[in-house]
Design a binder for these strands. Structure first.
Length: 117
DNA sequence: GTGATGACGCAGT
DNA sequence: GACTGCGCCATCA
């Protein structure tokens, strides 16, 4: 990440794109990695992303409970679940099954590549 | 410039 | 164990 800091949400998008297929992350993890200070900022950033799942896999970002809290922003209530299911993530009742197993921690995975600080 | 809102998270009850 | 309220920071009205 170049950490261009043009807009903090650019870093959010970059980090979301780094989420491997079949994995998911949380707003809190992203906010913590980017030092945003509040997970709400991540939510706002994704809301401002233009809703482009093909460009930004926002469907891989869920709240800390693994709930598809942002599904309503995907056009259809089931779009987000469909995208996750297509990647092999089991979604049950709008919640990710075995969420901890699919959880992707940026601080754990990118700690050595972290050039923020 | 102030108040309200939001794809959240945590502590307290 | 579930529900409620408050805090966090940035944007919009």
């Amino acid at each position: 990440m170049a950490a261009a800091k043009n807009h903090y949400w650019e870093d959010v998008y970059a980090l979301v794109r780094l989420i491997p297929r079949g994995r998911v992350s949380t707003y809190g993890a992203i906010a913590d990695y980017l030092r945003l200070g509040s997970p709400r900022i991540v939510g706002w950033a994704l809301n401002n992303c233009g809703h482009n799942p093909e460009d930004i896999p926002a469907h891989r970002v869920v709240n800390r409970l693994g709930e598809l809290s942002g599904r309503v922003h995907f056009g259809t209530p089931t779009r987000m679940a469909e995208l996750l299911l297509a990647e092999g993530v089991i979604v049950e009742d709008d919640k990710i099954k075995n969420f901890e197993k699919y959880m992707w921690h940026p601080l754990e995975e990118l700690k050595e590549d972290a050039d923020f600080e």
